[in-house]
Design a protein around this nucleic acid. Sequence first.
DNA 1: TAAAAATGAATGAACGTTCATTTTTTGAAA
DNA 2: TTTCAAAAAATGAACGTTCATTCATTTTTA
Lengths: 190, 190
Amino acid sequence: MVQDKKQAILKGVLKLVNRVGFYHISMKMVAAEAGVAAGTIYLYFKGKEELINELYTMIVSEFNESVLDAYDQDSPIKEVYRAMMSRAVLFYLNNKDYFSFIEQYTYAPFLFKENQEQNFMLLLPLYKMMRAGKKQKMIKNLPDAVLLSMVHGPMNTMLKMHFARKTDLTKATVQNKFYNACWEAIAAHN
Amino acid sequence: MVQDKKQAILKGVLKLVNRVGFYHISMKMVAAEAGVAAGTIYLYFKGKEELINELYTMIVSEFNESVLDAYDQDSPIKEVYRAMMSRAVLFYLNNKDYFSFIEQYTYAPFLFKENQEQNFMLLLPLYKMMRAGKKQKMIKNLPDAVLLSMVHGPMNTMLKMHFARKTDLTKATVQNKFYNACWEAIAAHN
DNA sequence: TAAAAATGAATGAACGTTCATTTTTTGAAA
DNA sequence: TTTCAAAAAATGAACGTTCATTCATTTTTA
């Protein structure tokens, strides 16, 4: 019962991210969207900051669940790579509001207080895969940051362009072209 | 004389982007930073929205100047690519405040009114280079959006990590590894 | 001295948060 | 099962603060 209302409030924020944009969200709007009174929010969250931070934590754990369980120690690394990218892209395509929220949260005023370290937690699944690939000599022996940027960066930009309707991410393009192009950037060419 | 004050105000905003973050910038702060009174800003700009938008336009044109003049029709496309990437990365490394501003401007509330189209103007130099490369069969025949994301994305993520001190972008790494890795993502492998 | 530029206190709107009040839930007694 | 009072949950008007913007006044320029 208590959780129902808390979830309704969190979901309310998400809906508003798309409808009015991160920085126009007021507590009154959240209350209206969630079907509660303004004061009720403060029974479940200390304040706006905690509300936003909890939502972020929720999204991060959902994302990691979705992507990390594609990590099968025994599969060839290229397949792990493909599975992870696939899951990550699908996760955001199916949850535009998550993507928008994450993008904007990164630069939110709140962040500059304590959560700055959490900021790259979303990259941990990819990070793990990279290290395995380097050991197997399947992936270039480059600094982690370089490799990470080579798969996270394109995904991010693609999604941004897709959601801004600058391009259409068809399944075929993503699966047959995009993943391969990124792979060629990070793969060791022996 | 008039331009001095206008420039001082614009530069004031930029300084504040780094010091207090985009969303904590108030008109009073800008006035103090620029050494003028609050009301003075309104002699040069219609309001906060116009101020921010003019700053964006200023940065876009500076960026395009810096990067586009690396486009020499006669050079081999791989060299053009390298020169452009090099200029773009250098531009942002030397102007952290420009990078921060652009990143945050993209999702600013202002944007959702009219300037949304300008949003990918920064990518035009890269876009142009891609099309030439495709004609010469040096670059994969992929949709422009895919190619663009493959060079813009990594650069963006690298810079973000660099500025967040998650990695150190040494000149050597960038020049010897990063550019090549991105190139392999977009190059046609005949 | 007239015009132009600059000032900064005043204004009103918007926001996050609080808290006195109302509504709902609970569970023991009848 | 019904009753009812105490506890818990929910409400939303009110508060204090912050902010962008205005404009009567002052300062600078021509």
